[in-house]
């Protein structure tokens, strides 16, 4: 899994707030695969059209591990809007993910 996938679904909408998310994974490990699909689903459901998601394979860019203070993976970093938030895990706890993204649970 060498591709660096970037999803640009950017829309200057009425809320004015756009989400910049970065997901760090380790290749195609089960946790990573689950995290990617879970996160995509969450974003599509709750943030349609106003998020930017970058998925990074740490195996390919090991130096990121130090600069981003990575310990546990998969890791989701919410860069914007502030405050920054970090989430680890396969994103299966949707409630928690939504709370951390300051989104109302539906």
């Amino acid at each position: 899994m060498s591709e660096l996938r970037q999803a640009h679904e950017f829309d200057e909408d009425k809320d004015g707030g756009s989400y910049v998310l970065r997901l760090l994974v380790t290749g195609a490990s089960p946790n990573s695969t689950r995290a990617i699909s879970n996160l995509k689903e969450i974003c599509e459901t709750h943030l349609k059209g106003k998020y930017e998601l970058e998925i990074v394979d740490v195996y390919q860019q090991p130096f990121i591990a130090e600069s981003e203070q990575i310990i546990a993976l998969p890791l989701l970093i919410k860069k914007s809007p502030l405050p920054q938030k970090r989430m680890i895990g396969d994103m299966s706890d949707i409630e928690k993910v939504l709370r951390s993204l300051s989104l109302p649970a539906k």
């Binding site: 946790n31 740490v58 310990i71 680890i88 706890d93």
Partner: peptide, 11 residues
Amino acid sequence: IEETGEYDLDG
């Protein structure tokens, strides 16, 4: 850090 499920220390 929020823990949102299974993870490992691969990082």
